[in-house]
Design a protein around this nucleic acid. Structure first.
Length: 525
RNA sequence: GCCGACGUGGCGCAACUGGCAGCGCACCCGACUUGUAAUCGGGCGGUUCCGGGUUCGAGUCCCGGCGUCGGCUCCA
């Protein structure tokens, strides 16, 4: 009855759980006797008979809040999944199994990329040498592309006095999800009297206020706009204990964060070129199936005027439509200070991930009193665009790990090639081959352990190394190596020079697919 | 934060109704020298997450904490 009172009054067009002017109930009957067993108050529709459900299984049970609010009581909820045929159910379960195999937390441990030591704390990762290598290559390429696109590189500290986040408004809106303040520099006299009041310092949850201070550090001219400030900025957010999840939801992360300050005239073009830049870069990392989501104002939680919001939202909408990508609306999904476009990417098994975000912010320039001198000699307030492309480096590594199931493109692979001697006699020969590859920038290891050759292949295979270079007596004699590629295919007796050229070209051209014998055989012929 | 499940060598797991903590992988040592996914033998490695309690006796039962996992809520 509570629900009817709360929700029954809505108009017919509104999407509500109960009613919409109309109230629906479904009688569930016993199949044999036809007696009514219970009546379900439900918006529906229901299947006319459970006979239509050919296959179902129970998945798990967990609590859920009554009507979805954490202020309310919780109910025990049982999750099941139902399908029109057994094959559909089987396919769905296989999909879940495939997703489990790709789980970046599992692969992160198996491939020795990163870990979450209890001693450090929940949601705080350390990157091991291989994960660090992967991360460095990702970041290096991103830096190069940002430099080419006209970004300037800045840096800011991890902590700041509270005034900065009071000015930005973050302390007002996000205090609960910030790490608590460190109260410092308080001084007392010998009589115990407070001589100097202390100050609160906060770990930064965002980089934008710092970039605004950089903008404000001296007078700015319209001639230097758009000014694009980029930083791999580490931020810390006190996420609730139940929500941290691998690398995709953490308490400490590094954003590939940039803030673009521009004139009103430049806004539209800047957003359009930014969208192109973002999509291009994501494609380079191997994601190629996108759609856009436009998040508009949350009327419960925002600052600024209606005109400002309309202007910012329109700018984003036009750029999104201009991109020709599919556009989905997310009403009320914006942050308190700005509407946003987010780029959603579908991965190799069809799951979608929110990747990049672009926000047009009309508040921060006002709060920080940013201004530039225009051609007219007057002072004007710049527009500001926030954007992150990976979102966070950690999260992006998590997504790529799942997308590639750990079999990273050769240019990203922590170890690109492993050299395996057939017997110990070929070890020195392969050390020499490896040295020559290393001189060309290839990350190569020689497996000179006491394992047998077959075991070494298995090890390299499980580590998902793209190239294996084998050499026996015949290869060494002929100044050649034999390839085994990550897919198991092979090519034998390839002259060293050719082998080195093939590997370096493959890496330098940033091919995202795994190397195979077939493709090289075609290329060589 | 809330609900539920679970915490055993680096990893994956076993240990009856409360009765000597074990196996595989990894690692170390030795032997073997092999042409495309696991050679053989030996060895090291544990305060069973932490703290309290019950008991003759606790990995196992009880209480509290921490952590992980699955959801809910949240996600600048």
């Amino acid at each position: 009855m509570e629900l009817i009172g709360l929700k029954g009054g809505g108009s017919a067009e509104e999407s509500v759980e109960v009613g919409g002017g109309v109230l629906t109930m479904y009688d569930n009957l016993d199949a044999r006797s036809g007696e009514r067993v219970w009546t379900d108050l439900c918006r529906g529709p229901h299947l006319p008979t459970t006979r239509r459900i050919a296959a179902f299984t129970l998945m798990r049970s967990a609590a859920a809040y009554w009507r979805g609010s954490e202020k309310n009581e919780q109910l025990q909820r049982i999750y099941g999944t139902a399908w029109a045929s057994r094959d559909d159910l089987k396919a769905y379960l296989a999909h879940l199994e495939e997703a489990a195999k790709r789980d970046h937390r599992k692969l992160g441990a198996e491939l020795d990329l990163f870990s979450f030591p209890d001693e450090i704390g929940s949601g705080l990762a350390v990157f091991h040498p291989k994960g660090g290598q992967l991360r460095r290559v990702m970041e290096d390429y991103s830096r190069r592309r940002h430099q080419e696109a006209g970004y300037e590189f800045v840096n800011s500290p991890h902590i700041t006095k509270s005034t900065l986040f009071e000015t930005s408004g973050h302390l007002g809106f996000y205090k609960e999800s910030m790490y608590p303040a460190m109260h410092l520099d308080e001084e007392y006299g010998s009589d115990g009297e407070l001589r100097r009041p202390g100050q609160d310092y906060y770990l930064k949850p965002m980089n934008c206020p710092f970039h605004c201070l950089i903008f404000r550090s001296r007078g700015r001219s319209y001639r230097e706009l758009p000014l694009r400030l980029f930083e791999f900025g580490s931020v810390y957010r006190y996420e609730k204990s139940g929500v941290v999840h691998g690398l995709t939801r953490v308490r400490g992360m590094t954003q590939d964060d940039a803030h673009i300050y521009c004139t009103p005239d430049q806004l539209q073009d800047e957003i359009k070129s930014l969208l192109r830049f973002v999509i291009d870069l994501l494609r380079d990392y191997g994601l190629d199936d996108f759609y856009l989501e436009l998040s508009t104002r949350n009327d419960e939680k925002y600052v600024g005027t209606d005109e400002q919001w309309a202007e910012a939202t329109d700018a984003l909408r036009h750029a999104a439509l201009d991109s020709k990508l599919e556009l989905v609306l997310d009403p009320g999904g914006a942050a308190f200070y700005a509407p946003k476009i987010s780029v959603q990417a579908r991965d190799a098994i069809g799951r979608t991930w929110q990747m990049s975000t672009i926000q047009v912010d009309l508040q921060m320039p006002d709060r920080f009193e940013l201004e530039y001198q225009g051609a007219d000699g007057e002072r004007h307030q710049p527009y500001m665009i926030h954007r992150a492309l990976f979102g966070s480096v950690e999260r992006f590594i998590g997504v790529l790990t799942e997308h590639y199931a750990g079999a990273f493109p050769a240019w990203l692979s922590p170890v690109q090639a492993v050299a395996i001697p057939i017997s110990d006699d070929q070890a020195d020969y392969l050390f020499d081959v490896a040295r020559r590859l290393r001189e060309r920038g290839i990350r190569v290891e020689v497996d000179d352990s006491a394992d047998r050759m077959q075991k070494k292949i298995r090890t390299a295979q499980k580590q998902k190394v793209p190239f294996m270079l084998l050499a026996g007596a015949a290869d060494a004699e002929a100044e050649a190596v034999s390839f085994r590629y990550r897919d198991g295919s092979q090519r034998n007796g390839i002259p060293i020079e050719q082998a080195i050229a093939e590997i370096t070209t493959f890496v330098e051209t940033m091919v995202n697919a795994s190397p195979t014998a077939e493709q090289f055989a075609v290329a060589a012929s």
